[in-house]
Amino acid sequence: MNRINQKLKEDKKLLSIYFTAGYPSINDTVSIIQNLEKSGVDMIEIGLPFSDPLADGPTIQASSTAALKNGMTSKLLFKQLKDIRQTVSIPLIIMGYFNPMLQYGVEAFCKKCQEVGIDGLIIPDLPVDVYHSEYKKTFEKYGLINVFLITPQTSDERIRYIDSVSDGFIYMVSSASTTGAKVGFGNTQTKYFERIANMNLKNPQIVGFGISNNKTLTQATKYAKGAIIGSAFVKHLTKKGKSSIQEFINTILKS
């Protein structure tokens, strides 16, 4: 069974952390992943940087620009992850935009993911219908789960469709925004969280966007299986470097 599905079966709320590969320094990828696992994180999204990240706010954009300047490429990322499964056992997901994967070759990219032990992909600009008709078979051939996003504006009908195509979990974007744009949850979010919870979808949901501390984490996981923190963690890396990852995770989990 895919590590993501295994993890989702555990009787606990999950914390997933996003970081941009190649940032702050080009060779930080492996040690950030190892430190996150040691700190008690349940799942990791490794950001493959892109020159034009449309769905991302300033924090992740800046980390992507810096990572590309540092020399990060798809090829280099796979090289860095070559032996990752010797030391890390939690699910690993690559999150990136479609063009770099297209240029690498979608099948070659998937094959490489399987070789190094990646469990899934999140590709914000690969629409669900294109995935379904053109790439689903390839992803499945290499044991990869492709995770789709829903937002407060997504219609019930479309959510049902996305749920039917999905495996693993659904990435529930908390508000109409780019990453890191809005902090905290209001009434709108609570209603949206409740609406989705009441739909009884076949896939569990993990909430992302707008989660930066214990309070928002608690709010999000009241209704969903887990939460994803991205911009707040990247900001922490910028300020404090990778040495204090444990400290950041402790604050988030209040442990």
Partner: peptide, 22 residues
């Protein structure tokens, strides 16, 4: 250019070998 994705559409675009838009 080479075929790729820019601003939401598949078309010819100038990019690096790694798929970064130039």
């Amino acid at each position: 250019g080479k075929e790729g994705i820019i601003h939401g559409c598949k078309t010819l675009l100038m990019q690096t070998k790694d798929g970064q838009i130039t």
